[in-house]
Design a protein around this nucleic acid. Structure first.
Length: 430
RNA sequence: GGAAGGAUGCCCGAGUGGCCGAAGGGACACGCCUCGAAAGCGUGCGAGGUUUUUGCCUCCGUGGGUUCAAAUCCCACUCCUUCCGCCA
């Protein structure tokens, strides 16, 4: 969440940036938060004054008892008792207001970076650069959607996936399954120079899913395991961000970098009927995520590095892609500044989002309470968090099945994947 | 799932209901000493809120309760350790 103190010191500037998100109701939420904050501080001050009186009296009781002045002790005691009752009433009120404020704050999105382009929806996202398409044309044999190729080659079996788990689940077989794993391995290997590999839990608590911003607002998008009060992670960002939750790091540790392969679970509640074929959208998919905790001044540079890393892997796979900037109206709740990487799939003639790289400022760190201490300085600051998909498997796989499709209907294995494919150089029909 | 023990500051660790935000030690920082260092000595050293400062308030796993007063007593929960059961 954003710093409540910004509402007291810099309200107009917060308001101006919320306006850019093009969601008018946000301003009302801000007003509500401001009012609650004012009320909270009034109540808290009053409560603390009473507490002080009770504390003082209680100390006196002890002292008077020791001095054998029983009558005075009794009188102080009953006085303290009365004030204590008032204090309790006020404390209850205070924590109610505190909780109300927290609930409002949890739903207020992050401050947008000045760098985020202006725009109301994803249609306004500007293309930053395009790679691998200059004057290029695609052959007819590449104009076959991956779901046809996948089924023909026996490496994609969504029919049986549906039998097992229902609609919007996918199943890879044979060389398809191998290639999915190869892609994970590739992404992990390419980032192992700078990131510690983690194999995190993928069922997490409500608190963990709240830290990254999925809860409370987007509960419908996540799978809940209610009996055990756990949630299936929609991305490894969730457990990775909470690794250092509640901790205070040393400045010298920053940036602290993690990467993880994990399955990702999404209900796709708002997308019924969209991209139902093939590998473009499923309830469960594999992804390799990279993430860093950083000092604020490191954030912007790291963001570029993350984009370069994600794009570099796509480039190494020989796939055409473009980088787009996410405009103000399309930026996610927790995001300060984001870039997406989209790969071109000639078979279905679509740009597929295969990576989203984001800088969160201290928005997540404040929720997760991740701080750091500057060397030689007193006090702590919240870290900045950044993360991005190093590689989202199904869509990259789809793009490979289309870009690398050969005239005879088989699919060539991209060179960088050869070491991971048990000697396979092409995927042919069984 | 059953039984027992535990959870205190960066770490270790003491703590009889009031004089405990917390002894002592280590680590760390600064100073003295030294050519320099080690050792010695001295000083400092948890976090957060509010506040111009002083101050005040909160925090001893979490949440409740008892009490004028809780790290200390009671209840529930969580996690850790060990044993039994079960199991990849």
């Amino acid at each position: 969440m954003i710093d409540v103190r910004l509402l007291r010191t810099d309200l107009e500037s917060v308001r101006a940036r919320m306006v850019r998100r093009a969601k008018p109701e946000l301003l009302l939420q801000l007003d509500e938060a401001v009012a609650l904050d004012v009320r909270l501080r009034e109540l808290a001050t009053e409560r603390d004054t009473l507490r002080r009186q009770v504390n003082d009296l209680s100390k006196q009781v002890g002292q008077l008892r020791r001095d054998g002045r029983a009558e005075e002790a009794d009188s102080a005691m009953s006085q303290s008792r009365e004030l204590g009752e008032q204090e309790r009433a006020l404390a209850t009120q205070t924590s109610e207001v505190d909780e109300q404020l927290r609930q409002v704050m949890l739903r207020i999105p992050n401050i947008i970076s000045d760098e985020a382009p202006e725009g109301v929806s994803d249609e306004a996202n500007p293309v930053i650069r395009v790679h691998g398409l200059d004057g290029r044309t695609f052959a007819d044999h590449q104009r076959v959607p991956h779901w046809e190729t996948g089924v023909a080659l026996g490496i994609l079996d969504n029919e049986r996936a549906a039998k097992i788990s229902g609609a919007m689940f996918t199943m890879l077989r044979g060389a398809g399954a191998t290639m999915a794993r190869a892609l994970c391995q590739l992404a992990l290997d390419r980032n192992a120079d700078a990131f510690e590999e983690i194999r995190p839990p993928t069922l997490v608590t409500t608190a963990t899913l709240t830290s990254t911003g999925q809860l409370p607002k987007f509960a419908d998008d996540a799978y809940a395991i209610e009996r055990d009060d756990l949630w299936c992670v929609p991305t490894a960002e969730v457990p990775l961000t909470s690794i250092s939750a509640g901790e205070i790091l040393d400045e010298v540790e920053l940036p602290k970098r993690f990467m993880a392969y994990s399955p990702c679970y999404r209900r796709e509640s708002g997308s019924a009927g969209r991209d139902t074929r093939g590998l473009l959208r499923g309830h469960e998919f594999d992804k390799v995520e990279i993430l860093a905790y950083a000092a604020p001044e490191q954030g912007r540079t790291l963001l570029d590095e993350f984009v370069a890393r994600a794009a570099g892997t796509i480039e190494a796979l020989g796939l055409p892609y473009r980088v787009i900037a996410i405009c103000s109206g399309d930026l996610g709740q927790s995001h300060h500044l984001s870039f997406d990487i989209e790969v071109y799939a000639p078979g279905c003639d679509k740009w597929l989002e295969v990576s989203s790289v984001s800088w969160f400022g201290d928005y997540q760190a404040r929720r997760a309470d991740i701080r750091f201490r500057r060397t030689g300085q007193k006090g702590t600051e919240h870290v900045h968090t950044l993360n991005g998909s190093a590689l989202a498997v199904p869509r990259v796989l789809a793009a490979i099945l289309e870009n690398y499709r050969l005239p005879d209907g088989s699919v060539a294995v991209p060179d960088v994947l050869l070491p991971y494919m048990r000697g396979m150089t092409t995927i042919g029909p069984k």
